[in-house]
Nucleic acid binder design. Structure first.
Lengths: 273, 273
DNA sequence: AGAGCATATATGCATGAGGCATATATCCGT
DNA sequence: ACGGATATATGCCTCATGCATATATGCTCT
């Protein structure tokens, strides 16, 4: 039994079109005269934190700004949302345009909207996280920058970005390198992205997104250790991963290593039981 | 030993004011002529999912829309962001205006920006989650509506909203009640909010936000069971909570119950070690 | 007042996952 | 053939959790 509300307008309408419901003539009339621009509007941007793990280090794709504001500082790839696309679509479009990356894992992270975060005016940015394997990351036409997260637990917050130069393969030099200047609030965005990635790693199968299609258990462990910033127990890690149901042995083995070759696995979506 | 990069500009400038850096005259000039409104902009709204637990059921604050579009349907409290406030500030302001709630736990959830989600035009909404104890929720001038989450694991997705009438204290009638019509994509927003709340409950001390300042372990367990939608082991729950370091015994006991009164605890922020 | 009841609170034990050590397997280079 | 390095497998210890049992403490009813 559906209750019917009294008509707000006395006009007769066809039976199948409710007087005031979704799609009604009444609503159509309302929408026709509705002025959305009566309110002032901010600009909406989308920024993407592209992560990868190279040589055991967590890296983020950053480019050097050539224009004002914050000219010369490092910034996340991003841009303004278009009126005909969803936020996810905007992130994927910008990822393809600015980094040449397609078919990557993209997920919305958080929306930053402090009034003073951009000197150009009121710009709200919807930050996203993308995960790519090292080979595709290196091939992308973006500067590679290492991110060193100050290990203060799970705090998030700002993150130090260290240029990846000669120090790349020298941990001592890396530790002494000075942090680069980061544009806008992007250091804070990266900080939250690292925090989120660390959290997801424990209870969702997301580490595979940072590896090629086939990989060894050691490579997967390296990913986890680089993201977490500490070492994990090898045996229990192997047991846990193999028991998760997300791994499938390919029967192939790694080649060209000087030790016993490990078996290659691939990621399988766990059956929905 | 810190390496120094060569200057990009050869012009002599005062030592403290870089030629092109943040706050430089060059940047000022750029900003003065920058036209942010060259791009079309969407409207930015903020919606809040206010949760509480009453009589063992997870409830959400919804009101019936009196205007087009989706007139007569149930909707989340919300509104448009102002140009001089942050997103969190907007959420708190709207919570106070629309529900009379202040000093509550508020956290950003997710931003919804599908092009067709609002017939009035392009409106991006930044959804938030707020947690209130039952007493304050009931006193707020909003309709109470029960939310029944179809227990399909962690899927999120749309959620059935069931009117809380005579069925409130009768689980059988509640199960048979038909779902109410929900405006816009708000059923989907609530679904994601439930999913997020369930996830946070396991590894962050957030359940306390749904209780008064002093509470018994049984009340806390009821919160967890209502949010998770299943039963938890009483003994291990007590052990885990007491060992978490978040609980502090007050020495007081509950009154007016017909059984042995339980001790009252209060929430303490865990000391930073 | 005392029995009965419902719940809180405490203790002991079984089970399973993770940390750790040891043993064996398999590649490469010399 | 042998050593080096790592993969892979197995067994043991510890701890968190699930489960059962026992005691404590308020109320209600007779």
């Amino acid at each position: 039994m559906v209750k019917r509300r009294p008509h707000s307008a006395a006009t007769a309408t066809p039976l199948d079109l409710p007087a005031t419901g979704r799609g009604s003539a009444d609503e159509q009339a309302f929408l026709a005269q509705y002025r959305l621009d009566a309110f002032e509007r901010p600009s909406v941007a989308v920024d993407i934190v592209v992560f990868t793990v190279i040589d055991g280090h967590l890296e983020v794709a950053l480019y050097e700004r050539t224009e004002h504001p914050d000219q010369g500082r490092l910034a996340l790839p991003g841009g303004f949302m278009r009126m005909d696309e969803s936020l996810d679509d905007a992130a994927r479009r910008l990822l393809a345009d600015k980094a040449g990356l397609t078919d990557v894992f993209v997920e919305q992270l958080y929306t930053f909207g402090e009034p003073g975060r951009d000197p150009r005016g009121r710009i709200v940015t919807v930050a996203h996280v993308a995960l790519v394997d090292a080979a595709r990351f290196s091939a992308a036409p973006l500067l590679r920058r290492l991110v060193r997260v100050p290990w203060s637990g799970e705090t998030g917050g700002d993150v130090d970005v260290v240029d990846i130069g000669a120090a790349a393969f020298d941990d001592d030099a890396f530790d002494e390198a000075a942090a680069c200047a980061v544009a806008f609030d992007h250091a804070s965005i990266i900080g939250m992205a690292v925090k989120r990635l660390r959290g997801k790693l424990d209870y969702t199968p997301v580490g595979f997104q940072l590896l090629p299609a086939e990989f060894t258990l050691r490579q997967l462990q390296d990913i986890h250790e680089a993201v977490r910033g500490d070492v994990v127990n090898k045996d229990s890690f192997r047991r846990r991963m193999l028991a998760s149901g997300h791994l499938e042995a390919t029967g192939n083995h790694e080649r060209g290593v000087t030790w016993r070759p490990a078996e290659l696995y691939r990621f399988v979506r766990r059956s929905a039981v």
